[in-house]
């Protein structure tokens, strides 16, 4: 499961054939708006979210926003 660390990954954008880069990305849920560093395609801006992130930190933030 070492496909994604915070800054690098072997995954690349299939359409643009570009390596992903860590950049500030806007995310939002309910009343919450944040800017976080995420991996994205520098060309088409498609953002990569791995399983660990989705079921880890993101889920945690979702739950805490829901209970606010």
């Amino acid at each position: 499961m070492n496909e994604q660390t915070n800054t690098t990954t072997v995954w690349m954008c299939d359409k643009c054939q570009k390596a992903l880069m860590s950049q500030k990305v806007k995310v939002r849920y309910l009343e919450g708006n944040f800017e976080v560093e995420l991996l994205k395609c520098p060309e088409c801006n498609m953002v990569f979210i791995g399983e660990d992130l989705a079921l880890g930190k993101i889920l945690e933030v979702e739950k805490s926003l829901e209970d606010k």
Partner: peptide, 26 residues
Amino acid sequence: WVKYEEQGSDITVKDVYSHRMEVVED
């Protein structure tokens, strides 16, 4: 999110997950 292997028209699913947080891609 779906992770899969593609062989012709055969798609073998290897992982599925989801999140509710919306990512603004622009």
